[in-house]
């Protein structure tokens, strides 16, 4: 078991502005841990460029870079539209590098929408996204970043996610892999079918009940011997 990143360096009131690690976060951590051997093999093949969109507290990025890919020479980008989240994540990942004894590779933070402004077209090898997946009215998706940006997902909870799905081929490297969290109301099977049109095969890596929600983690890839 890889320990969960320690977020105790964040003050309690930070979580008024930053999404606090919850069941969906832990589902993504568990799915990544499930794929640990594959991910480490991937990292042994080449220098990985990896990224998390909507890094929030930095819990997932820290777990992924320092817990799973520990000491591999990986470049990991973290983005969030919230400045509070970018600050929190930077603190958390740096603190946890020491805890995981992770001394190689780097984590870079940028405040942006998806990966805008980053020169990493078609070069991300592993992309992580725990989207704002709660079904809401489209108008409920905040125009300026606030805590609702972490969960308000519009129609079927998919309005934000769809923007990413439609651009995935422009972000991922040829053998890149994408992990995302979804809930039953997002219609995960439909997402899997939809992505076939872009040539992406997928696998449901994890499914579990969390209160009234059914959470799952989907993994997408194409031309990948490792992640078929």
């Amino acid at each position: 078991m890889i320990p969960t990143p320690d977020t105790s360096c964040l003050l309690e009131d930070v979580f008024q502005d930053v999404y606090e690690p919850a069941e969906d976060t832990f589902a993504l951590l568990d799915a990544l841990e499930e794929d640990k051997d594959k991910l480490c093999k991937f990292a042994a093949e080449k220098l990985l460029f990896t990224a998390e969109i909507g890094c929030g507290s930095g819990c997932v990025s820290s777990f992924f870079k320092s817990g799973i890919l520990q000491n591999r020479p990986t470049i990991h980008f973290m983005t969030d539209i919230s400045n509070a989240a970018c600050n929190a994540a930077t603190n958390v990942v740096n603190k946890n590098r020491e805890l995981y004894n992770d001394k190689s590779g780097i984590l870079l933070t940028a405040q942006t929408y998806f990966l805008q402004g980053l020169r990493i077209k078609k070069s991300i090898d592993v992309l992580l996204f725990n989207p704002p997946y709660v079904p809401t009215e489209f108008e409920e998706i905040p125009k300026e970043a606030n805590i609702a940006s972490a969960w308000a997902g519009g129609t079927d909870g998919m309005d934000v996610t769809n923007q990413l799905l439609n651009n995935l081929s422009d972000i991922l490297s040829a053998d890149g892999v994408f992990y995302m969290v979804a809930v039953a109301r997002n219609k995960p099977e439909k997402i899997q079918t939809y992505m076939l049109r872009y040539g992406y095969d997928s696998k449901e890596v994890l499914r579990r009940k969390a209160g009234r929600e059914t959470l799952c983690v989907l993994r997408f890839s194409k031309n990948s011997a490792l992640f078929v």
């Binding site: 539209i81 400045n83 600050n87 930077t90 933070t109 405040q111 942006t112 402004g117």
Partner: peptide
């Protein structure tokens, strides 16, 4: 102009 503040680059554009 993209500012860097407290070590974080802000790459957001206005609407």
């Amino acid at each position: 102009i993209y500012p860097v503040f407290e070590g974080i680059p802000n790459m957001l554009l206005s609407e």
